[in-house]
Computed example of a mutant assay.
Amino acid sequence: MEISHDKKAAHKAEEVKGRVKKTAGAATGNRSLEAEGRADASQHLARRVGPGGIWVS
């Protein structure tokens, strides 16, 4: 199962957004923002695993 380039780009953007939030939260001491960034980045990884636990690149 192949993911379209548009979806790959959207997932990558979400991962980057999550990393930025996590880093900004850590830098400012805002634990809520840091946790939100971790959650966003984790969602990206969950979407990369397809049916049957197969890693989709």
Results as ranks from 00 to 15, higher is better:
Arg47Ile: 00
Glu14Met: 09
Gly18Lys: 09
Ala9Asp: 14
Ala41Asn: 07
Gly37His: 02
Ile3Glu: 12
Arg19Ile: 13
His5Pro: 07
Val20Pro: 01
Lys7His: 13
Arg19His: 09
Glu15Thr: 04
Ala9Gly: 00
His11Ser: 14
Lys8Trp: 13
Glu15Ser: 01
Glu34Ala: 08
Trp55Val: 12
Thr28Trp: 03
Ser32Ala: 10
Ser57Thr: 06
Gly25Phe: 05
Ala24Cys: 03
Ser32Pro: 00
Ala26Thr: 08
Thr23Gln: 00
Ser42Pro: 00
Lys22Cys: 04
Met1Ala: 13
Ala10Cys: 09
His11Tyr: 15
Thr28Gly: 08
Thr23Pro: 02
Leu45Ile: 03
Lys21Ser: 07
Glu2Asp: 13
Lys8Tyr: 13
Gly37Trp: 00
Ile3Arg: 15
Ser4Trp: 04
Ala39Pro: 01
Asp6Ala: 15
Gly18Val: 11
Ile54Thr: 14
Ala35Met: 07
Pro51Gly: 10
Lys22Ser: 10
Glu2Lys: 15
Val16Glu: 13
Thr28Asp: 06
Ala26Arg: 06
Arg31Val: 07
Arg47Glu: 08
Met1Val: 11
Thr28Ala: 09
Asn30Gln: 02
Ala10Phe: 12
His5Leu: 13
His44Phe: 04
Ala13Asp: 12
Ala13Tyr: 06
Glu14Ala: 08
Ser32Phe: 03
Glu34Val: 01
Ala46Asn: 02
Ala46Cys: 00
Gly29Ser: 01
Ala27Gly: 02
Trp55Ser: 10
Glu36Asp: 06
Ala39Asp: 09
Val20Tyr: 03
Glu14Asn: 05
Lys7Tyr: 07
Met1Asn: 11
Lys8Gln: 15
Leu45Pro: 00
Asp40Cys: 05
Lys21Tyr: 09
Ile54Phe: 07
Lys12Glu: 11
Ser32Leu: 11
Asn30Tyr: 01
Trp55Tyr: 14
Ala9Pro: 04
Lys7Thr: 15
Lys21Thr: 02
Arg47Val: 10
Ser42Asp: 14
Val20Lys: 04
Thr23Asp: 02
Glu34His: 01
Trp55Cys: 06
Glu34Ile: 01
Gly53Ile: 07
Val49Asp: 05
Ser4Pro: 15
Gly50Leu: 01
His5Cys: 04
Ala39Glu: 12
Glu15Lys: 05
Gly25His: 05
Gly25Ile: 05
Trp55Ala: 11
His44Tyr: 02
Ser4Asn: 14
Ala35Leu: 10
His11Cys: 09
Pro51Phe: 04
Ile3Met: 15
Arg31Glu: 12
Thr23Met: 01
Arg48Trp: 08
Ala9Asn: 12
Ala24Gly: 05
Ala13Asn: 11
